[in-house]
């Protein structure tokens, strides 16, 4: 399942606890959605760059297991945006549930 437009929010959520590199972010999203949310990992990086351009995340180089990697961490604006997205999602989810009825 691929919810168009939710990837930036999912990335921000994956970075709330700790900074991470692209592969780790992708794995976190897949694990936390128990494999339901599937996306092509090649599209993760453009979304990360967009968030970086908008100042929602910032990146830095770090070495892991002897390999230089680009890490991303959420910024204060990113946390603000995530809080807003969460509130919007809850509202939308409540509305859809009230129409479709709870199973």
């Amino acid at each position: 399942m691929n919810f168009k437009g939710t990837l930036p929010t999912l990335i921000l959520e994956a970075l709330v606890q700790e900074p991470g590199h692209g592969y780790r972010i992708a794995q976190k999203i897949k694990e936390r959605s128990q494999g339901v949310l599937d996306f092509k990992e090649g599209t993760l990086y453009p979304a990360l760059h967009k968030l970086e351009n908008e100042g929602m995340v910032e990146s830095y180089e770090s070495v892991e297991n002897g390999r230089a990697r680009r890490y991303y961490r959420i910024t204060r604006s990113g946390r603000g945006m995530l809080a807003k997205d969460r509130a919007e999602w809850r509202q939308l989810s409540r509305a859809v549930t009230s129409i479709l009825g709870e199973a």
């Binding site: 996306f39 092509k40 990992e41 090649g42 599209t43 990086y45 453009p46 760059h49 967009k50 351009n53």
Partner: peptide
């Protein structure tokens, strides 16, 4: 395979880079 379609990625990269 996990990377997906290169053309789709290119399209998205061109929007941000």
């Amino acid at each position: 395979n996990s990377l997906g379609d290169a053309k789709t990625a290119n399209c998205q990269y061109r929007r941000v880079l």
